[in-house]
């Protein structure tokens, strides 16, 4: 048949793409923007508070991380974070809250398989790759910095 989309794999893929609805990207982006922005703004307020109490920038940053991670882990434990994530998408995923959620969620899920291989083994299923790639890149950055600095060229 001439217009049969099941003739070839490619035709069918195109046909399915046409038939499948797209994600409501504008709405998703709007929600991601204000939730993500709000989380960052809360971080800024915490950091401002820390600085007003005399903490240095570095330490304030750590306090912000700890509080946001703790809050996110708490919400995950109450089964609320997935509802926020469903609404906000990248808005709650990209900030440090999403990273914390990605550790706590598998830990809760696999608790039934024991604490060592269940919780311990699975908690970094999502966060593990993030740490591996992040730290590996930082090692490369360090080495490049070392090479270029010793030859007298500084990056930026």
């Amino acid at each position: 048949m001439a217009n049969n989309p099941t003739e070839t794999v490619k035709d069918y893929q195109n046909y399915v793409d046409k038939k499948s609805p797209n994600s409501p990207i504008l709405k998703n982006c709007f929600n991601a923007f204000w939730v993500g922005g709000l989380i960052c703004a809360i971080g800024q307020i915490i950091s401002g508070f820390c600085k007003s109490r005399g903490l240095d920038t570095e330490l304030s940053g750590t306090v912000v991380s700890i509080l946001l991670i703790g809050f996110s882990a708490f919400l995950t434990g109450l089964n609320l974070f997935n509802k926020i994530g469903k609404f906000a998408g990248a808005g709650s995923l990209v900030p440090i809250t999403g990273f914390a959620n990605s550790i706590v969620a598998p830990a809760m899920e696999y608790k039934s398989e024991g604490y060592v291989m269940g919780v311990g083994g699975k908690m970094f299923t999502v966060a593990g790759p993030v740490l591996v790639f992040g730290i590996s890149t930082s090692i490369i950055v360090g080495i490049i910095y070392l090479i270029f600095n010793t030859t007298g060229i500084t990056l930026v």
Binding site: N22, S23, I25, N28, C29, A32, F33, W34, V35, G36, G37, L38, I39, C40, A41, G43, Q44, I45, G48, A88, G89, A90, G91, L93, V94, P95, G98, F99, S102, T125, V126, A127, P129, V130
Partner: peptide, 30 residues
């Protein structure tokens, strides 16, 4: 705080576009 809101929000929007347009899993986005 306003600056933090806008810049943080925009970084999240980049992530959202990646999710919706490329079908990357959250782990890959992170």
């Amino acid at each position: 705080i306003l600056k933090a809101f806008v810049v943080g929000g925009l970084i999240c929007v980049i992530g959202q576009i990646l999710i919706d347009k490329t079908k990357l899993t959250p782990a890959r986005i992170l």
